[in-house]
Simulated assay, not measured.
Amino acid sequence: MFTILIVEDDALLLDALTGQLQQQGYGVCTASSVPEASALLQAQAVDGIILDLGLPGADGMDLLVWVRSHIAGLPVLILTARDGVDERVRGLNAGADDYITKPFNMQELQARLQAMLRRARQPAFTHAASAPGGQSISLGPLQLDPASQTAALGGVALELTQREWELLELLVQRCGEVVTREDVLAAWRASPPEPGQAAATLNSNALEVYVHRLRKKLDPSSLAIRNIRGLGYMLAKP
């Protein structure tokens, strides 16, 4: 039986979704905010997420970025009232597997959910997870171990700060794709600060410093972090 986490702050919609999915044989757990959802994901395993973006306190996109940084292969279906093309593109580029706007048809949602879960179980769509026991990720001479949050270049360990590790992991997981500044900052804000670092220092200027430092550490390899003007960064495929 699949277990689905529904992250939705509308109590009536949450109840309706829960009832419908349980009737279809799914196990369901729920959360109404980003902190509640991230705490639940760290406490128990789920097979997929239905995620609203308009959540109180923190945007659902923050949770999506956190999931992609910590549980890379977990399927996520965005269910939101935001129907603009830019929002759809942003959600899909941030790692969502599907995107449905409200109001929606329940049968269509169930069909898309089933298709998403089915794809996630196929070998071609499996990803290394950043949870304890997750598999290592290799990209050219670079190897990442999400379980211990360590990286090596050509067999030589890299000395990385927590922020550098999170930036590198996000770039590697989305190698060949644009990672926006907002995506990186959201991932950083979703994790504990480094010792002596205030949350207020997490801004674009700080990000430029971390990118520069990470570039220098990758210099001996063929891996290059490119600036995509006006958008963010991309780790070029070796």
Rank of each mutant, 00 (worst) to 15 (best):
D47Y: 08
I50Q: 03
I50Y: 05
L51E: 09
L51Q: 11
D52A: 09
D52E: 06
L55K: 06
P56T: 02
M61L: 15
M61H: 13
D62S: 12
L63M: 08
L63Q: 07
L63A: 02
L64E: 11
L64F: 08
W66A: 02
W66L: 00
W66T: 03
R68V: 07
R68Y: 07
R68K: 05
S69P: 10
S69M: 12
H70G: 01
I71A: 13
A72W: 14
L74E: 02
L74W: 00
V76I: 15
L79M: 09
T80L: 15
A81M: 14
R82Y: 09
R82L: 11
D83A: 08
G84K: 09
G84S: 15
G84H: 12
G84L: 06
V85Q: 09
D86G: 02
D86R: 13
E87H: 13
E87F: 03
R90E: 03
R90S: 12
G91D: 04
L92S: 01
L92H: 04
N93Y: 01
G95V: 13
G95I: 02
D97M: 00
D98I: 01
Y99K: 05
I100R: 11
I100Q: 10
K102V: 08
K102W: 06
K102A: 05
P103C: 06
M106A: 14
Q107N: 10
Q107S: 11
Q107K: 15
E108I: 14
Q110Y: 05
Q110M: 15
Q110C: 14
A111I: 05
A111W: 09
A111C: 03
A111R: 13
R112T: 01
R112G: 03
R112L: 07
Q114I: 10
A115N: 13
L117P: 00
L117W: 06
L117H: 02
R118P: 09
R121Q: 10
Q122M: 14
A124N: 13
A124I: 06
A128T: 14
A129I: 10
A129P: 08
S130Q: 10
G134H: 09
G134S: 11
G134W: 08
S136V: 15
S136I: 13
S136D: 11
I137E: 10
S138N: 12
L139I: 11
G140F: 10
G140R: 06
G140Q: 07
P141N: 01
P141C: 04
L142T: 07
L142Q: 01
Q143R: 14
Q143A: 05
Q143N: 10
L144W: 00
P146A: 02
A147R: 07
Q149S: 07
Q149G: 00
T150Y: 00
A151H: 13
A151S: 05
